[in-house]
Design a protein around this nucleic acid. Structure first.
Ligand SMILES: [Mn+2]
Ligand SMILES: [Mn+2]
Ligand SMILES: [Zn+2]
Ligand SMILES: [Zn+2]
Lengths: 138, 138
DNA sequence: CAGTAATTGCACTTCCATTGCATTGATTTT
DNA sequence: AAAATCAATGCAATGGAAGTGCAATTACTG
């Protein structure tokens, strides 16, 4: 079990107070978060810093970006050992039309999608919309 | 075979010169277009008019909106008899990482996606990214 | 033709994402 | 330890796309 410090260092990210705080924030959230969510959680910090921190995490494959169709980019921590860039690794995302929350369904890999001749599939984005478990009352 | 005028009227959309032009523009394009694309094609017309025309078409199920992950909304004409609002009718979209064009693969319906217990699927957005037939050289 | 209703154009706004630059802070070198 | 160097942070500003209020114009109705 490695500490957050060790994880960041292993990815060549300098350890700073801000980065540790943001990492912990993302880690304890079970849902994908927007930049505004992070802003609200760290009101003393500057938006730009939060933005660049998340972008750094994203670049180093610590978080992945989620486009759930709301028009607002969301972010979530990658699974341990996740290779976001490889198609085989991609899980699907669920966006709740009721509570507006988006979750990673990391257990649910995206099925193989057939494309017509001449097309080369490199990557798939799959978002299911509906009612989440908390909102469906079950 | 019905004319464009008849189609618009059948959807309770008043026929105007602008609407006919935009419809024809969308019809002859084989790819999904952004509002900017339309703007560039009709420089004399006002952005707002183009915007509201497309929104009218969308509302009346003449065009459907496509979120291909580029962050810019795209639009494409619906197929004849397409019921965009029904999940069963949904086709997948392909976005080319090379030429940045997005096409409807209307023949390729989205497979049934399983979601965990408690989750209710109402809608699915599936975008495949890669290299399109024109760019793959075959 | 007059009256009414919808469409169009212009101006303005909002929201999110992104960048330039100065400042602060941390790390390395002498 | 001080100086030099490089990265991280904060502040201000920008850009792009989406959306709205209202007045002017155009199309439809009787
Ligand atoms: Mn995810
Ligand atoms: Mn389509
Ligand atoms: Zn919910
Ligand atoms: Zn292409």
């Amino acid at each position: 079990m490695q500490t957050i410090e060790e994880l960041l260092e292993s990815k060549n990210i300098r350890v700073t107070a801000m980065r540790l705080l943001i990492y912990k924030f993302l880690a304890e959230k079970q849902i994908a978060v927007t930049l505004s969510d992070i802003e609200n959680a760290f009101e003393k910090a500057d938006r730009t810093t939060l933005y660049r921190t998340v972008k750094t995490f994203e670049e180093k494959d610590i978080v992945h970006q989620i486009d759930d169709g709301t028009g607002i980019t969301k972010y979530a921590l990658c699974e341990k050992g996740c290779n976001c860039e490889l198609e085989t690794d991609l899980h699907l995302h669920f966006h709740c039309n009721n509570c507006n929350e988006t979750v990673c369904l990391t257990e649910h890999k995206i099925p193989q999608i057939k494309v017509p001749d001449g097309f080369v599939s490199e990557n798939v984005n799959l978002v299911v919309k509906g009612i989440c478990d908390k909102c469906s009352g079950q």
